[in-house]
Design a binder for these strands. Structure first.
Length: 203
DNA sequence: TAGGCCATCTGGTCCT
DNA sequence: AGGACCAGATGGCCTA
């Protein structure tokens, strides 16, 4: 019997795959690490590695990412997409103690809980990226600024805030050296020039 | 090809 | 207990 690996969440689709399909993924396949670890502690596989070359890919196009998330969540949901495969039942179990870090306070998350946590982390980072994008849009840079790195965005934003503070006569001198308006403008322009030059060099 | 940057996963810690 | 946050690891993409 073909034993499917757990589904993976792509941008817009879910891919049910076997172990060595990972190379076909557009991005790296970090879940492979988890699977490898999981499989290493489960030696009674019903499928040999060689037979995995018979890949079974079932791609389900989803209308949006929220839908995709709904497909993988519900750790306790017996009716989820994984429940039809033989291994889904032990995917909901905590990993045996032998596979856990001894020093860890918490037991290693189950596969489905790990997926949910990954999704949360992904959303958190996406929010962070969106915030950087929002910050970038209000920076006083014209022209090609779309590829500013996060570090550059922060540096320019700091200089810009300083200029705005000086313009509004806000005293930044506590713990900082006080700059004149001319100096703060010069600091901003040199920061922008430096970061754009840096971008030009690295990109 | 090396280096910079970024997305993602992962486990630890903090906080509610 | 579980979510939020963080840092390290990893790998892909892009550019010089």
């Amino acid at each position: 019997m073909i034993k499917l690996e757990p589904i993976e969440l792509n941008k817009n689709c879910i891919v049910a795959n076997t172990s060595d399909i990972s190379t076909s993924m557009s991005h790296s396949n970090p879940m492979k690490r988890w699977r490898n670890r999981f499989n290493s502690s489960n030696t009674n596989n019903t499928l040999t590695q060689s037979s995995l070359t018979n890949q079974l890919i079932s791609t389900v196009n989803l209308e949006n990412e929220e839908h995709a998330n709904l497909m993988i969540i519900s750790d306790d949901d017996d009716d989820d997409e994984l429940s039809n495969s033989q291994q889904s039942d032990h995917m909901d179990e905590e990993i045996p103690l032998i596979d856990q870090h001894v020093s860890s306070k918490r037991p290693r998350l189950s596969y489905n809980k790990r997926l949910v946590a990954n999704a949360r982390e992904r959303e958190r980072v996406h929010n962070l990226t969106a915030a950087f994008e929002a910050l970038r849009r209000v920076l006083p840079i014209y022209g090609d600024q779309s590829k500013l790195s996060r570090l550059s965005i922060l540096r320019i934003a700091c200089s810009y805030v300083y200029v705005l503070g000086v313009l509004n006569e806000i005293d930044f001198s506590e713990g900082e050296n006080a700059y004149t308006l001319h100096e703060s403008f010069h600091m901003l322009s040199s920061t922008i020039a430096h970061e754009l030059k840096r971008k030009k060099f690295t990109k």
